[in-house]
Design a protein around this nucleic acid. Structure first.
Lengths: 147, 147
DNA sequence: TTCAATGCAAATATTTTGCAATTCG
DNA sequence: CGAATTGCAAAATATTTGCATTGAA
């Protein structure tokens, strides 16, 4: 994936070395359409780089987050999964069945949120917005799961 | 606090017993204006009920959440703090300095979110919105912190 | 009196740290 | 070669479970 290469370039640009472990982790996370936990990254990346240690996954994710290349995703099931970060100001729409995540634009919401803050004497500096639902592929499947 | 009494009534109504430990935990959480972690609840509630165990705090919070009386709050610093739940459909506005939380109304957002989902082939079933900023009291303080 | 609830201790799970060996540049 | 990076083992945290005792109804 092109994104994967770009991340490696970014790491290098910030003085980090390009190691086998990092390449494997980057490859996995950069190409995932759903948020992955450290252990999931570990398992997936070991097929490409068997000597990988879980600690290195933690440390690499930390650096990728610091560089703004990935973002932590909070869900009911847990808050320690990571996804490639969107460009600009975007919000997440996550499938509750398969975990697939897509970003959507929310620029027009900022003004609304500032107004809400005003009404309570707050200055709003950040907002978190996530939508949960079912993606096109999973909508028919859910009925099947239940029956 | 009146809310505290109401929670105890709810617990009883669902077949749970009203014990000293539960009264202490309920009292602390129901009257808090900011989200508290299990350990914070534990420390605060022990002044009223010294024999309290941390495990009981976990178990009580679990029941309160199950009854919809409290809700888990996710923040940058952690995702294991609880706050009294709002009535109806409300969202959180949290002060980044003192932690004070207030709810605001978000009914009008539902239609907008459904439309966003549509554009991506999703059926939106839930949404999650939180605003972060500075409350009236903390706005002047922040400048002082920095200088 | 009965069984839910408790608190302790121990088990799990998750994340972080110390450190000697390895490897990128 | 030298410093950054790695993986292991161990430590530190956070949460859950087993179980004998206690106490609410």
């Amino acid at each position: 994936m092109a994104e994967s290469q770009d991340w490696l370039t970014q790491l290098k640009a910030h003085g980090y070395r390009l190691t086998g472990a990092r390449r494997a982790v980057v490859q996995v996370v950069a190409s995932s359409a759903r948020a992955l936990t450290p252990v999931e990254v570990y398992d997936a990346a070991r097929t490409a780089y068997p000597a990988l240690g879980l600690v290195t996954v933690y440390r690499t994710l930390e650096k990728l987050e610091e560089l703004g290349l990935i973002q932590r995703v909070h869900q009911e099931q847990g808050c320690n999964a990571y996804l490639p970060h969107a460009q600009g100001h975007q919000h997440l729409l996550i499938c509750q069945r398969c975990g697939r995540a897509v970003y959507f634009d929310g620029d027009d919401l900022t003004a609304l949120f500032a107004r809400v803050g005003d009404e309570h004497g707050f200055v709003v500096r950040e907002h978190w917005l996530q939508l949960f639902g079912l993606c096109a592929k999973c909508q028919p499947e859910v009925n099947r799961d239940v029956s």
